[in-house]
Design a protein around this nucleic acid. Structure first.
Lengths: 112, 112
DNA sequence: ACTATGTTTAACATATTCGTTAATTAACAA
DNA sequence: TTGTTAATTAACGAATATGTTAAACATAGT
């Protein structure tokens, strides 16, 4: 994977396990052991996923004794969204087209 | 890469060449040759990138004679954004914390 | 039919990803 | 010290990603 920020962020999000971890962390910080529990996967595997998320800036980690807690830091999601915003006018255009299509269809006068 | 929709979408966005292709297509549809020109990369390489974007639903392609044009279809970006929206309250929380911190710092009364 | 142009597919090399198990490090508790 | 728990690192293997060049396929023009 390329090492520019957006590639690292999107790359981190491109794995269902990592997205599930983020979803879990939305309910509050958790240790590696707690994050491992729901998955049929070894702790080293989760540990690596956490490293990927950390590199993307999507989590921060802090040690408290033996326990290493991960906390959600969603700022990179905003960065990603901002990149996608460049295409919003195309969404709008798509919606307009869909809307127009539905109106034509509903009126029974669709020229297609 | 996992083959669920979101993984395919995020995976497609996790490459700078592919994001550049999408940016180019925001200015209108283009052929494979036209999309290859700006890159120091062979046409087969671009052809594969286009396939990845197509699989993610980010472009559609239509042949007109010899020319195979790619067109932006940004709907999947919205799907990705919708997933990220789950974390919007954390963005807001982050902003709130930042805001509060700045206000405390500005007033010279920051208890920290 | 022949040739030129546009694009994909085949075959290959290399690097990265993602998982495993085993070994190691770090912190706590007796 | 010894043992237990928490987590990472090491070493490995299999699958996937990303690029290359050469060959094949598809359409157009003469």
């Amino acid at each position: 994977m390329a090492d520019d920020r957006l590639s690292v962020i999107f790359g981190a999000l491109a794995d269902p396990t990592r997205r599930a971890i983020l979803a879990r962390l939305a309910d509050g910080q958790a240790t590696v052991t707690e994050l491992t529990a729901p998955f049929a996967m070894s702790m080293p595997a989760i540990s690596r996923h956490l490293k990927v998320l950390e590199r993307a800036g999507l989590i921060t980690r802090s040690r408290s004794g033996q326990h290493l807690s991960s906390t959600l830091r969603p700022d990179p999601l905003q960065e990603a969204t901002e990149w996608m915003e460049r295409y919003r006018r195309f969404w709008d255009a798509s919606f307009d087209r869909l809307d127009a299509h539905l109106r034509r269809a509903a009126s029974g006068k669709d020229p297609q």
